[in-house]
């Protein structure tokens, strides 16, 4: 007999993989957003190189928030959430697993893709590696904020959720971009450290908030 948490992991992974929309959706969104920038700003190599880190970060931020919006939504609608609550198991671990699975399938591919697109936007290779590192630290934060947005608006699933959490994501965005821009200096480590610290403290606070937000639909 499999444990509750293992079932959560397997269930969510299978659901994710069985649908091309949930898997490809964020990738398509990310690629099209990236393409919008050169179309809007022109193909000037130097200009794009200067903007590239920001372009990629913003695109990932939006794609990530969108893909995590409905992470608890389906469970709420189809009754799975009822069963989770009835099981009396620790919801903290349950929510963490759900967010992790979603991050693994939607954010991790984007990080690899961002390395690819960084060449198309003329970002120096060293900076691109730092970009990947900042995304590796930053996307889990975005995922948790996205999940929180979804948890807050379980019933309606509207734009309110993401507009609330985007301002909260700003430190991650700023620190990530600062790190990339100072990829030649020692300050880099300072920003990376801060980003890691932001991630570290976000985990308990945001997951607890997600649970609080879910709970308020069951009162």
């Amino acid at each position: 007999m499999k444990s509750f948490y293992f079932k959560t992991f397997q269930r969510d992974s299978k659901v994710y993989l069985s649908r091309s929309s949930s898997f490809l959706g964020p990738i398509v969104f990310f690629l099209i957003t990236i393409t919008l920038y050169p179309l809007a700003f022109g193909s000037d190599e130097e200009k794009l190189a200067e903007l590239s880190a920001g372009i990629i970060w913003i695109s990932i931020l939006l794609a990530n928030l969108l893909s995590h919006q409905f992470i608890f939504n389906e469970d709420y609608k189809d009754g799975s959430l009822d069963l989770v609550l009835a099981s009396g198991k620790s919801l903290f671990l349950w929510a963490s697993i759900k967010i992790f699975v979603n991050w693994y399938f939607s954010s991790l591919p984007l990080i690899f893709l961002s390395l690819l697109t960084s060449f198309m936007l003329y970002l120096p290779f060293d900076a691109a590696l730092i970009l990947a590192l900042t995304l590796f630290l930053g996307t889990p934060i975005l995922s948790m904020f996205g999940a929180l947005a979804g948890a807050l608006t379980l019933e309606r699933g509207n734009i309110v959720g993401s507009s609330i959490v985007i301002p909260m994501c700003l430190p991650a965005l700023i620190l990530g971009i600062l790190a990339i821009q100072s990829y030649k200096n020692e300050e880099l480590f300072f920003y990376i450290f801060l980003l890691a610290a932001f991630l570290f403290f976000s985990i308990p606070i945001l997951i607890a908030s997600c649970l609080g937000a879910i709970r308020l639909h069951f009162e």
């Binding site: 929180l148 807050l152 609330i164 301002p167 909260m168 700003l170 430190p171 700023i174 620190l175 971009i177 600062l178 920003y191 932001f198 606070i205 945001l206 908030s209 609080g212 937000a213 709970r215 308020l216 009162e219």
Partner: peptide
């Protein structure tokens, strides 16, 4: 409850946002 959660997280976040905006 939703408003309190958001206000609280925003409150924790606000000084961090300020600091990072200053560095930026």
């Amino acid at each position: 409850q939703a408003v309190s959660i958001v206000v609280l997280i925003g409150g924790i976040n606000l000084p961090i946002i300020k600091l990072s905006v200053e560095w930026w």
